[in-house]
Nucleic acid binder design. Structure first.
Lengths: 201, 201, 201, 201
DNA sequence: GATGAATGAGTGTTCATTCAT
DNA sequence: CATGAATGAACACTCATTCAT
């Protein structure tokens, strides 16, 4: 009896990540994924029920890697602004190192495979960060607006900047990232003069 | 490929828009699009070179409808803030009326079909708006940062808010849209005290 | 616009008949059937929803050919015995000419594809013959027993004799067929001395 | 391929019998059979060379159970008619108790796996019964016709009646079985008046 | 121009079989 | 002996595309 091989499992997720970000969902066949992962097409179906399940598993893996990166920076002993700044920096570092993570996340979350169920699962894993933000709202540090608005100005910009290609590139230098975060903070902070003086020189 | 019947041309674009937003790119076959448009599969190839060309044509059509909506609001006699506010409101009205336009735009622009060439084309058509923004930078009204940063806080949020489904919905009431725009303006404006006093009560 | 080609339709049924009787259901692939019929695999799916539908269509075609052969011999001006004898002879002639018809019929009707719905359809088409038999029961010419018993002795023997291969072959000479029918008649007839004197010399 | 565990061997035959009669040959996979039998797919290949061998072994097992049932009733001290009547009754009792045996037998013997070799093997095991019949022919009790004809009227009807489903069911009451056998006897017996007076009232 | 039957390469998936454990 | 993960050839079926009508 052979044991289920964790290397194969990971190789399948990695191959899916690579091929989908290179060619798109429909242009990536199961056979291509299997070859890239160094396994037989049939083996894919030992680890995943079907192609959809493989794509979803890859998405969840990608989400976990991004969410873990963000959550690691949450430290309630620090101020909210500092915590969020660290999250931004950490995510940009991941983006530079593994640009495919953000690319896959964006492709999948704008595809027909995305469901509310998946969104909820990710929100649960993001709870520490969302809690810190909610606490900030309670303390009057940031605006008391719908979560969708905070997402739009606090988290989505990361995806946009990280993906920006060709025409309007974003160069992720430390200074640029700091400026980007300052803008995000200006958008959501209640009192700009006190909390982000450096953004209004 | 020189067409006669403009009704057929438009029916094909509309059918593509509907089916792709309902089922996704790979689940939408040329035969389905043809049936929905009330033509034969062969007819699709009179109007478009292949399936990719049909998808791109639909994307361009969608972009034009959105860009036209935005550009119509540009009026150099108004202040930049007011111009941008009008763009936001107009786009949200479109989103409420034809949610498919934004959905298709986002699906396509995060897919493997998206190219820099298409981005450039759209930027050219957006020139009046981008020029107004550049002028605002020159006059010290908004921050002098890379275009990608302005996009991230001035235009992307519209897409995010308009698409937000299920868990964290954004209710596009007039007050909510105004608040959302105020946050965008806070992010990009140089001097918050003067330009958006209502956002820092 | 090309018209649906009846030659192709018939070629598919014939190819299915041939290959299934040669190799069995599971060993016969759609691709093999298509090649034998001189069409592309995809064409099969223009004429039939799936492989099951093709097999069922072939079965119905085979049934119709056998049923028509039998029904043609029904002539209410003749005595029941003579009518049935003609049915037997006609079916044996078909069996000699196209042995595949009976082979396919037997393979299919003993397979997992067989349904009561199909049995009923065939019974409806066999109505004239079944009516003649019922009339014979009413007139006291044949035994008043369940239909399944009449089938077992009046019709099934044809299938058995026609299929008998290898070890215990049945040579379908005129004399043999007459003897076989005489035995069937002896089984079902009410009064043997009058109706089939030649079988009890 | 030398087995140890007779429970596993029998469980495999039983699982095959069940699954094939429920789903058909092609819909029944080796993995399904193994699961039903409570063993691993690999184990199947310790007891049988391949899937075909497993199906054939199941067929032979089924045949033996049916043939043994028939042979047990052969008793040369009784008249041929009585011996055959007992065979009929015994087989119908088996059919009521284990309908799968006849179903599998019929499915297999009408499939592409059936060979003359298998028929011969069964005929050898049936020798006592066939001998009794031959003796009956020699003594002028039954008609001196080809074996295929005797099969068609003496043995096949059992299969037909036992399988008859849905539309034209055969209810295997004692009276019905006796009537059925009487018809079979009428078909093959030389002199009806003497041997089966009850069938010609 | 318009049709839709026809194509055939390509897809996702299954499954009989093998073999390392 | 027994296992079940792994294989890869084969399968049923789809679909973008072509072309005779």
């Amino acid at each position: 009896m052979r044991q289920r091989d964790d290397n194969k499992r990971l190789a399948l997720l990695e191959a899916t990540l690579e091929l989908v970000t290179e060619q798109g969902f429909s242009a990536t066949s199961v056979a291509m994924i299997a070859r890239r992962a160094g396994v037989s097409p049939g083996t894919v179906y030992i680890y995943h029920a079907d192609k959809d399940a493989l794509l979803i598993a890859t998405f969840l893996d990608v989400c976990d890697r991004l969410i873990d990166t963000a959550i690691e920076q949450v430290d309630s002993r620090l101020g909210l602004r500092e915590q969020l700044r660290r999250v931004w920096v950490a995510l940009f570092e991941v983006a530079v190192e593994s640009p495919r993570l953000f690319r896959f996340h964006d492709m999948f979350s704008h595809s027909a495979w995305m469901t509310d169920e998946l969104t909820q699962r990710n929100d649960q894993r993001l709870a520490p960060l969302l809690d810190a933000v909610a606490e900030g709202q309670r303390q009057g540090v940031i605006k008391s607006v719908e979560l969708s608005l905070l997402e739009a100005f606090l988290f989505r910009p990361i995806h946009h900047l990280v993906q920006s290609r060709g025409c309007h590139p974003f160069s992720p230098s430390r200074a640029n990232i700091d400026m980007a975060f300052a803008m995000a903070w200006d958008a959501v902070a209640l009192d700009h003069r006190a909390s982000s003086p450096e953004s209004t020189p």
